[in-house]
Design a protein around this nucleic acid. Structure first.
Lengths: 224, 224, 224, 224
DNA sequence: CATGAATGAGGTTTCATTCAT
DNA sequence: TATGAATGAAACCTCATTCAT
């Protein structure tokens, strides 16, 4: 028997079920976004139902990404919330949390990387702008806390965050070798395979933050 | 009248024509890879002919990317070739060359970013491995020169390069707002629009290298 | 708050609200029948409620058409009711009323023309037969009055009416160029645009009736 | 083994095969236009191949209609070509040819009637204009011959043709009861079933032309 | 009676690639 | 070698209608 989600609480639950189905399918094959039909089937819903909750397939993944982003930023914020007054400890915790989160959810960077391109190509400009804006808004909120916790000039936290994430995203894309690529291949075939994403990211962040905190991380010649 | 390319010289020319057509089409709309039909038309060839020179559409873009990568790495190598014995000057030149190259060919990062995902999804695993390997080989060659020029331990140059490029790729993807997205929107809509890729990249690289050279850039707990 | 229509008077009112909503929506875009969802929304009702009053979307338009048909036939009947004993005056009035009605409600012919096909495709055979029958019944009633007023043999009035309406419907379909088709086009592009439906219809009716009344309008070889 | 139609003669043949498949499918169920997939299958072609010859499903039917229109008009022209100098004989032949053609190809009027609405709804405005224009052009050519043959004032032939066709189209739509509608029903259920399209059309045309030729068929108050 | 969430069939079109010519 | 016609899988989304609430 079909359940109708009339209460907004039930609707939220159903929305999440769709998101969950989409994610679980993506996990099985991270090469491409699963089809809308597959997501519906996995969620135990009819195809049309999915479109009651999302206006397009890409919006599902945009929502997924937003959800993950929020979790990520919340994790980062926690690094600075504890032990106020010990900036250097905060930075250490930040690096730990940053790396741990991403290393434990590799699909996040994978999805984000795929999203670049796919979302832009298939969302309307307005939808894409909304997506980016909501990301930027969350980021700004978090970076304001960074500014405060580390007693930085306004805006410096944002740059630190941006660059840290750039490092993560970039390293991931270079070092990521999905299972299906690795099959039947000799290790010596991949000069870069020896590099472990988590290890590299941690090291890179440590280096970057060392350099950044050595002097104000301002952009040397920032545009007006 | 149909032209037959018998001499291998002509074949090379035709191959380049296809590459050129692909790039010029991509430049016109960087949202997606141009279609095989469009590339053929632009190159003045029949659709089938394109497949005599490339085994798939994605191979065209893989070749394009390799070509650009070689040019990029050659540029970087030049930074270290001049004035042997002045490491710090070399680093400055490196940053300049690095940033200038990418800023003057934004389509390169765009293509590289799109390629992640698209190439992997549509190239066979073996083809994809080859693509990655050729990239890694070039990179290794260049990083060996970095090691020598900066008197680093073997492998450190590779890490510096990898992380520098990660920074570039990651920043680009976060800060890139193609023209069609910006249209009809207020500047204040984009909290990140104020950030200029070139400026940010230069600043980030300076910070990173400062931190990296402050102490050996080794991975702290490198996997065996 | 939800309004319940218990009294049958209220029900009639609600039914009419749906009809009105359907018509007003159709007027806005005569290319297609409005969707059930749109009709419900316009009528201020839930989608399901519409189906309490009509068994299908097409039934709404069948009802609308019947309503209009009745109005049309009533108008025609008036032509013959006045001034009994002056058949030729009656014919003139008939043509006037006929043309004026249709010219002032072009959506009627539009709807009727669209209905052909759409109703047949989507109504059940039984429903479609009912629809046609009710139309035929009204028509017969009217044509009996025509027979009497013009002192025709039984059945001749029906033929006159049928053919007059055929002329109207056929001319409309040939001469109708909706606004959205005309946009951005040069007048000389449409060799038929110079023809005005109202003018042509009047002239055609005059000709037809002249010929028809010149001798009995019987079908020469009527089927048994 | 797959045949490739390289010669333009073969291409024309293939185009006609698609048209033929579309028509034969339509004949089987005249309630709706057959799907593009069904047409392709019937023509023994892949779905994509159909789109090499027509830009959309509706264009197939537009082409079909144009083809039939041309045949129809050619038939009508023949009525006036023979026996120059005997206008009244020409009119008789015209009525005969007109009725015979339509009665022997009832799908034509059916398709034309369905087309009204379907083509307009699904063709782009520009495509629809082209379709209408080509129809008008053919019509004008034919009516010029009518003018000459019947020694009419320029433009009168066009009106005669237009009105004759209006009569046919309108009568058809009113009298047409497809097989699936008639099943399981009593004859007395359909007060209009007694009317035979062919008979009625002939009678109506005779009446109309009698009236029209009794005096110039000009529109009484033609718009400038 | 009223609601609106859920259904799911249905059909068009694109485009990378193949293969007959 | 070159051509371009043919292939056919792939996937989205709409919307009339039903039915749980």
């Amino acid at each position: 028997m079909v359940k109708h989600a009339h209460a907004s609480e039930d609707k939220e639950k159903r929305r999440n079920a769709i998101l969950g189905a989409a994610l679980s399918l993506f996990l099985k094959d991270t090469r491409r976004l699963p089809s809308a039909a597959a997501i519906a089937a996995k969620a135990g819903l009819a195809k049309g139902t999915v479109y009651l909750y999302f206006t397009s397939k890409e919006q599902i993944f945009a929502a997924l990404l937003s959800r993950e982003w929020d979790a990520f930023l919340a994790t980062l914020r926690r690094s600075f919330a504890e032990e106020p007054g010990h900036p250097s400890r905060a930075v250490d915790r930040f690096v730990d949390n940053f790396v741990d989160f991403l290393a434990s959810r590799t699909y996040f960077l994978r999805l984000d990387s795929l999203g670049y391109g796919l979302l832009e190509a298939n969302l309307s400009p307005a939808e894409f702008r909304d997506f980016k804006r909501s990301f930027a808004t969350s980021l700004n909120r978090t970076s304001a806390e960074v500014d405060k916790a580390l007693a930085l000039e306004a805006g410096d936290g944002l740059r630190l965050l941006l660059r840290s994430y750039a490092l993560a995203r970039g390293l991931f894309q270079t070092l990521d070798f999905p299972a299906h690529i690795l099959n039947d291949s000799q290790p010596e075939d991949h000069p870069l395979t020896g590099f472990d994403f988590e290890t590299e990211l941690r090291a890179a962040l440590v280096e970057y933050w060392r350099g950044a905190l050595a002097s104000p991380p301002r952009s040397p010649r920032r545009r007006k």
